[in-house]
């Protein structure tokens, strides 16, 4: 008799996972890269397109962060610190999720998909291969949109910024999001009790990949040949 009861509990868990519902609604649409058709293809053009796209994505992602339950209650300084630490992880996770349906290609935007050859031309082969390693991990797991939105919020809350003023408030935010992930997995994947843990265990590779990306774009910035918008520059400098 325990089984049907468990099932009822399971269904109510799904219905009650308000955090997931809020995050699904808050999830921004993809934006277009719109590479300039009048400029001939080159590494500079590819990087200019990506930096412009990243700048616009960042504006959208800051708007998204404000919808995470509990995030707006943090002090402005702590909101800034979390975003300054996690912004690249958030950008990369969105590219990863968009790329799950393709083989060895990264969907930076609906109109900007990079294959191996394009990655090589842009000098991004190593970086893109690391991002593809993440894509592969999530493909194997069959990452769902609900899990993706939770994981992205967890990456933000768990960004290990050294500048946090109210660490207890940030811990509470982490607990809420972690709890939502556990509840979701208990309800949706009772056959795999370790699924939440498996998802959390992808975060070190995300952190490592983001650090590599920031380092790469910092050296591109120093090189000075690729124009970059202010928000992107501001966040690169925060690292």
């Amino acid at each position: 008799n325990a089984l049907p009861q468990k099932k009822i509990l399971t269904v109510s868990h799904v219905l009650e996972n308000k955090v997931v519902s809020v995050l699904l609604v808050a999830e921004p649409e993809g934006i277009f890269a719109m590479p300039d058709p009048t400029v001939p293809e080159s590494d500079i053009k590819a990087l200019t397109t990506l930096c412009d796209l990243a700048d616009r994505e960042l504006v959208v992602n800051i708007g998204w962060a404000k919808h995470i339950p509990g995030f707006p209650s943090l002090s402005l300084a702590d909101q800034m610190s979390l975003l300054q630490s996690a912004w690249m992880e958030i950008l990369i996770l969105r590219v990863v999720f968009r790329s799950l349906g393709l083989e060895d290609k990264l969907v930076y935007a609906e109109d900007y998909v990079m294959d191996e050859e394009q990655s090589r031309l842009a000098g991004l082969l190593d970086l893109n291969n690391t991002i593809l390693q993440l894509v592969k991990k999530f493909k194997v797991m069959g990452l769902e949109k609900e899990e993706f939105v939770l994981l992205k919020a967890i990456a933000l809350a768990n960004s290990d910024s050294m500048q946090i003023e109210d660490t207890e408030a940030v811990q509470r935010l982490q607990d809420v999001l972690h709890g939502a992930l556990q509840d979701y997995e208990t309800a949706r994947h009772p056959e795999d009790p370790r699924r939440a843990g498996k998802l959390i265990m992808t975060l070190p590779l995300l952190r490592q990949t983001a650090a590599r990306a920031v380092q790469h774009f910092c050296s591109i910035k120093q090189d000075g040949r690729v124009p970059m918008h202010k928000l992107f520059l501001e966040l690169l400098e925060a690292k």
Binding site: V60, G63, A65, M80, E234
Partner: peptide
């Protein structure tokens, strides 16, 4: 904080990102 003016503004601003 002065160094991170745009992030600060975007977080304080209540308009949606599309309006900026």
């Amino acid at each position: 904080k002065e160094k991170h003016k745009i992030l600060h503004q975007l977080l304080q601003n209540n308009t949606s990102p599309g309006d900026l």
